[in-house]
Computed example of a mutant assay.
Amino acid sequence: MSQPLDQLRPARRQTLSDQVFDTLSEMLLSGALRPRDRLSLRDLAERLEVSMMPVREAVSRLAASGALDVSPKRAVMVPLMTDAEFADLTMVRMLTEGQAARLAAERASRSDIAGIRVLAERFDEVLDRAYGSAAAVAANKDLHFALYRAAGSPALMEVITMLWLKAGPIINFDIGVEAGVPQEEEMTRSRGHHSREHHRMLCEALTARDGEAAAHAISEDIRTASELIRAHGAMDTDDNRRRIIP
Rank of each mutant, 00 (worst) to 15 (best):
L44I: 14
R189C: 08
M1W: 05
M81N: 03
E212K: 13
A208I: 03
A234L: 06
V126Y: 00
E220A: 09
L44T: 09
L8C: 10
E185Y: 09
A179I: 13
T161W: 02
D43P: 03
S190I: 03
Q3C: 04
E57P: 01
Q99S: 12
V50E: 08
L24F: 09
Q183I: 10
M162A: 12
E185H: 13
A87F: 06
G152L: 03
L165T: 02
A225N: 05
A138K: 08
P10L: 10
R242A: 13
S111A: 13
M77H: 06
E158Y: 01
S111D: 15
G192C: 05
Q7E: 07
G66K: 12
L228P: 01
E49M: 08
S51P: 07
V177R: 13
L228N: 06
P54F: 12
A217Y: 02
P246H: 09
R107D: 02
E212I: 07
R223C: 01
M201K: 13
R122H: 12
H144A: 07
Y131G: 01
L165P: 03
I229T: 04
P72L: 15
I229E: 01
M162L: 11
G180N: 14
R223H: 10
S109H: 10
L147A: 01
Q19W: 08
I175A: 09
R93V: 09
S17T: 06
V55G: 04
E227V: 00
A64R: 15
E85R: 09
A205W: 01
E26N: 12
A32K: 10
